[in-house]
Simulated assay, not measured.
Amino acid sequence: MIDSRADIHPSAELDSSVEVGPFSVIGPNVRIGAGTRVGPHVVINGPTEIGRDNRIFQFSSIGEEPQDTSYRGEPTRLVIGDRNVIRESVTLSRGTAKGLGETVIGHDNLIMAYVHIAHDCTIGNEIIFSNATSLAGHVEIHDKATLGGFTLVHQFCRVGTFAFTSMGSALNRDLPPYCLASGNYARLIGINKVGLRRNGFSDVAIQGLHRVFIRGMRGRAGRESHLDAMLAETDIPEVRDLIHFVQGSRRGILRGGRQH
């Protein structure tokens, strides 16, 4: 299971079913769960915990020191869940002492080639990171979001569940759940109707989200009162989630563009 040309530190803890390809280096304070396959020329440093049945492709750098000038060698960590696919040349950094102290990646994510996830990011489940997506530090990506190729996300931004970015988008504010964004800098262009229908959302939920986008998110004037009124009159869970996300935004949400 472990190629003789791999370099495994004696303190690393690998399940007996873990596979490691030639010329990969696994450092101290690394734990890897059952069924995970590490390709050739991968470097994994600790403290890092990797769950079950992940696939890590060649030339990836996992659990390296954060790219942060304040980092002074503190024992921060990277935590990766189960069944993630981490493609070629991906870089995943540990946390920082001034941040969360850890970078956390959930389950069942597809992380395509050349993706960078920086320190103290919190990544949910079933997210697609298309090629060369880059996240700055302290970013939150919620479940089932899709980030198009070459998407850039500014530090401390949040991306909501089922949100979608087009190729080359640059996010400098929060992207609310169920919404589409495009451009540099990105603007909101509507509700992710295609993605929601593909995932079985009802027409009632989609129409309710669309009303929130039109009445409460396209402009700033009267936003607070519009959102409060819509929250009081709806019992649709998705609509309530969207409104709560917008109301809880510290960085502010992306500006609304023309309806797509």
Rank of each mutant, 00 (worst) to 15 (best):
residue 3 D to P: 05
residue 4 S to W: 10
residue 5 R to G: 04
residue 8 I to P: 09
residue 18 V to K: 08
residue 19 E to A: 13
residue 21 G to T: 11
residue 24 S to K: 01
residue 25 V to E: 02
residue 25 V to T: 12
residue 26 I to A: 14
residue 27 G to S: 10
residue 30 V to Y: 12
residue 30 V to H: 10
residue 32 I to V: 15
residue 33 G to A: 15
residue 33 G to P: 13
residue 33 G to S: 12
residue 34 A to V: 15
residue 34 A to R: 14
residue 34 A to G: 11
residue 35 G to I: 06
residue 35 G to N: 02
residue 36 T to N: 14
residue 38 V to N: 04
residue 41 H to P: 00
residue 41 H to R: 08
residue 43 V to R: 13
residue 45 N to W: 15
residue 47 P to V: 03
residue 49 E to G: 15
residue 50 I to L: 06
residue 51 G to N: 08
residue 52 R to K: 15
residue 52 R to Y: 11
residue 55 R to W: 14
residue 58 Q to F: 09
residue 59 F to W: 13
residue 59 F to H: 15
residue 60 S to R: 12
residue 60 S to G: 13
residue 62 I to A: 02
residue 62 I to T: 04
residue 68 D to Q: 02
residue 68 D to I: 10
residue 70 S to I: 00
residue 71 Y to C: 10
residue 72 R to A: 14
residue 73 G to Y: 12
residue 74 E to Q: 07
residue 75 P to Q: 09
residue 77 R to M: 01
residue 78 L to P: 05
residue 81 G to M: 02
residue 85 V to T: 15
residue 87 R to P: 01
residue 91 T to S: 11
residue 94 R to A: 02
residue 94 R to E: 08
residue 95 G to C: 01
residue 99 G to E: 07
residue 101 G to K: 02
residue 101 G to R: 05
residue 102 E to W: 04
residue 103 T to P: 12
residue 103 T to L: 02
residue 106 G to M: 11
residue 109 N to P: 05
residue 110 L to P: 10
residue 116 H to W: 11
residue 117 I to T: 06
residue 118 A to H: 10
residue 121 C to R: 01
residue 122 T to Q: 14
residue 123 I to M: 08
residue 127 I to G: 11
residue 127 I to D: 07
residue 128 I to E: 01
residue 128 I to D: 15
residue 128 I to M: 15
residue 129 F to W: 06
residue 130 S to E: 13
residue 132 A to V: 11
residue 132 A to E: 04
residue 135 L to S: 09
residue 138 H to Y: 10
residue 140 E to D: 07
residue 141 I to M: 03
residue 143 D to Y: 03
residue 144 K to C: 07
residue 146 T to R: 05
residue 150 F to Q: 09
residue 150 F to P: 00
residue 150 F to C: 13
residue 153 V to T: 04
residue 159 V to Y: 00
residue 160 G to Y: 07
residue 162 F to L: 04
residue 164 F to D: 04
residue 165 T to G: 00
residue 167 M to Y: 00
residue 167 M to T: 00
residue 169 S to Y: 02
residue 172 N to K: 13
residue 174 D to I: 03
residue 176 P to F: 07
residue 176 P to V: 09
residue 178 Y to S: 07
residue 182 S to G: 08
residue 187 R to V: 14
residue 189 I to V: 12
residue 191 I to S: 09
residue 192 N to M: 03
residue 200 G to K: 08
residue 203 D to N: 10
residue 203 D to L: 12
residue 204 V to L: 13
residue 205 A to M: 04
residue 206 I to A: 10
residue 207 Q to G: 14
residue 209 L to D: 09
residue 211 R to V: 04
residue 211 R to S: 13
residue 213 F to I: 01
residue 214 I to A: 12
residue 215 R to S: 01
residue 218 R to F: 14
residue 218 R to G: 11
residue 218 R to D: 00
residue 223 R to V: 05
residue 224 E to G: 06
residue 225 S to N: 09
residue 226 H to K: 14
residue 227 L to K: 12
residue 228 D to F: 13
residue 230 M to D: 08
residue 231 L to V: 05
residue 232 A to H: 07
residue 234 T to E: 12
residue 235 D to E: 15
residue 236 I to Q: 12
residue 237 P to S: 11
residue 237 P to D: 10
residue 242 L to G: 02
residue 243 I to V: 14
residue 244 H to L: 15
residue 245 F to E: 07
residue 246 V to W: 02
residue 248 G to C: 00
residue 252 G to T: 06
residue 252 G to K: 04
residue 256 G to K: 05
residue 258 R to A: 06
residue 259 Q to A: 10
